[in-house]
């Protein structure tokens, strides 16, 4: 067999994933693998230098992504991927830092870090995979669990108000906010491409089915049923008011790109301000 032919027969994910770690631990029917494939496609299409990309993730099912990718990656403590990513970006502003983690990790345990990174407009991309519960630890109620959903710490149904993640990110100052379900794979890819090209705090929420816990406890069928259900109950409304994006249990999910604006990033604000105050004594840290 010729060299060229052999190259063509390789799995395209090999350049992106550590194939020796496969098969991954995600359950059959989980949508997480699809999101990782969309992310890989976005990186390939936007032609970023893979040596300048760093993935940070916390604990949880989605947190395993950092261990599976063949990029510089960091698997941090629970809820802390955003501060680690902030540190990475501050230490090496050339890096494209991507936080790839779950809802429990980013807005549950690490909620405070998330809002402050968004407030400062740190130049990072946060991909939050929302499966509506803490799946790796046994299906506890998370900050995003819809009212009425049955989970292991809510055997009679959940009664807490859930977070509306695009509204949270928007209110804290994110410059790019989008929400998709994992079956919108081409749109997720395009969204990640757009967000990678933007400077500032970008936030993409991807709704995925959790088959072993959320679907089983609520009798919603298998992964395929849930994937199809989320897709069919989603309605694309680009630029919708983020206050109206609450998700009800088995209700309609509004998806789309909600916020896409420009704002000076943390580095730009720091350099402009300190230059104004200190004058020539100040040497700009980034750009300029």
């Amino acid at each position: 067999m010729k060299e060229e032919d052999r190259l063509e027969e390789r799995n395209p994910m090999e350049e992106f994933l550590r194939m020796d770690r496969m098969p991954h631990i995600w359950c059959p029917g989980c949508g997480l693998g699809t999101v990782v494939a969309s992310f890989a496609a976005a990186l390939r299409k936007s032609q970023v230098d893979l040596n300048k990309v760093a993935i940070v993730s916390g604990i949880g099912c989605t947190g395993r992504v950092a261990g599976y990718v063949k990029l510089d990656s960091f698997h941090t403590t629970h809820g802390r991927p955003v501060p680690f990513a902030t540190g990475l970006k501050l230490a090496n502003p050339e890096l494209k830092v991507v936080v790839f983690s779950g809802d429990g990790d980013i807005v549950g345990i690490g909620g405070n870090h998330f809002i402050h990174a968004a407030r400062r407009n740190m130049d990072i991309l946060v991909i939050c995979v929302n499966n509506f519960n803490y799946a790796m630890t046994g299906g506890q109620v998370a900050a995003t669990t819809p009212i009425q959903a049955n989970l292991s710490t809510a055997p009679y149904g959940n009664f807490e108000y859930p977070f509306n993640l695009p509204y949270l990110a928007d209110a804290c100052g994110a410059i790019y906010v989008a929400r998709w379900t994992s079956l919108h794979l081409r749109r997720v890819t395009k969204s990640i491409q757009e967000a990678l090209a933007k400077k500032g705090f970008s936030f993409i929420e991807v709704i995925t089915p959790c088959v072993t816990l959320y679907a089983r406890r609520n009798r919603l069928g298998d992964g395929l049923n849930l994937l199809k259900y989320y897709y069919e109950n989603s309605e694309i409304q680009h630029g919708a008011d983020t206050r109206t994006l609450d998700i009800d249990f088995q209700g309609k999910i509004i998806v789309g790109k909600f916020i896409d604006k420009e704002k000076p990033t943390f580095f730009e604000c720091m350099n402009t301000h300190l230059k104004k105050v200190l004058g020539d004594k100040y040497r700009p840290y980034y750009g300029e």
Partner: peptide
């Protein structure tokens, strides 16, 4: 099928 496969076990050349 390649884009949707969560196990990265299916691909098309």
């Amino acid at each position: 099928c390649e884009a949707i496969c969560p196990e990265f076990s299916l691909y098309v050349t």
